[in-house]
Structure formats: C-alpha cells, structure tokens
C-alpha cells in the first residue's frame, strides 16, 4: 500500500511510470481549473493528455504488447485535432472581446452563480522578470569616410 521508489522489477517500473502519469494528470487538472488565460488552459489540457500517454505506455511495457502504443498514437492525433479546433475558438473569442481571459465570457454562467469580480490584483512589478542586459562588446565603430564616399559611386 505504501509507495516507495523501488527499482529493478517490472512492477516497480510500471508503478513509477504510472506515478509520473498521475502527477502530470493532476497538475494539468489544477492548471485547467485555476488558470484564466485561454492558452494556458489548453496547455494544461495537453498536460493531462501527456500524463495519460505515459500511463498507457507504462502499462504497455508491463504487459508486453502494443495496445498502449496504438492508443497513444490515437491520443496524439486527437490532440492535434483538438488543438486546431481550440485555436480557432480562441481566435474567435479574442476577436470578439479583445482579451484572452476566460472571465470575459462570464455572462455565459448560470443564473444562480455570482459574478466574479477581481478584488485585489497583485502589482505588475512583483511579477515582471528581470531581463538580462547585454554588456557592450568591443569598441564603438568609427565612421569610415572613404567607404562612405565609395558607396555613392555604385
């Protein structure tokens, strides 16, 4: 019942693979429930599909047949279809509202649910990353008068 990282047996490899798949699945679930950017929501959905793929391949390795591999091929192609349709919907939503925010569509909520209002938004400075600045390389070039005059004749 207790789970420990044990190596060496086929069952342990199956358990480790299933564990990675479960972690990816639950991380994707958290992402799709909580994030508000439409693109990040779809990335989370793809994360859940990745977790499922890892679990299927682990089962396939354990049983020694190609069933899981075949299912993952189908998962890949369905994910490609899903991404195409989803991007079209995201683009349509963006052209209508001008935002990639899923809360922009909260008029579609049920009548019993309250309107979601952002009470306190964290300041922008806290979340902006520190971009690295390039150090100046070499000396600044001096203008070459001769080359400039030659260029006019061409």
């Amino acid at each position: 019942m207790t789970f420990a990282i044990v190596f060496g047996t086929a069952l342990a490899l199956l358990q480790n693979g299933l564990m990675v798949g479960a972690i990816l699945l639950s991380l994707g679930l958290i992402g799709i429930l909580s994030r508000r950017n439409l693109i990040v929501m779809f990335l989370s959905a793809e994360l859940m599909l990745q977790g499922i793929s890892v679990s299927l391949v682990a089962w396939s390795r354990y049983h020694g047949d190609f069933g899981g591999h075949v299912l993952v091929v189908f998962v890949l192609s369905v994910a490609a279809c899903e991404a195409a349709i989803a991007l079209v919907f995201v683009l349509q939503a963006f052209t209508r509202t001008g935002r990639l925010d899923s809360t922009a569509w909260q008029t579609l909520r049920e009548a019993t649910i309250d309107r979601s209002i952002d009470h306190e938004i964290p300041s922008l400075n806290a979340s902006l990353p520190n971009f690295p600045r390039l150090t100046p390389a070499g000396r600044s070039p001096t203008p070459d008068d001769q080359a400039a005059t030659q260029r006019d004749h061409i």
């Binding site: 958290i30 429930l33 909580s34 508000r36 925010d101 809360t103 938004i121 979340s127």
Partner: peptide, 17 residues
C-alpha cells in the same frame, strides 16, 4: 495582463488536484 496575475479559486483547484 491582469488576468494572468490572478487565478480562479486557487484553493479549491489545488485541493481537487
């Protein structure tokens, strides 16, 4: 944007996950 700095129900979703 402002919506990237805030999440919907972070507590409930993490508990669910």
């Amino acid at each position: 944007t402002t919506s990237d700095r805030i999440t919907n129900e972070p507590m409930l979703s993490t508990v669910a996950g």
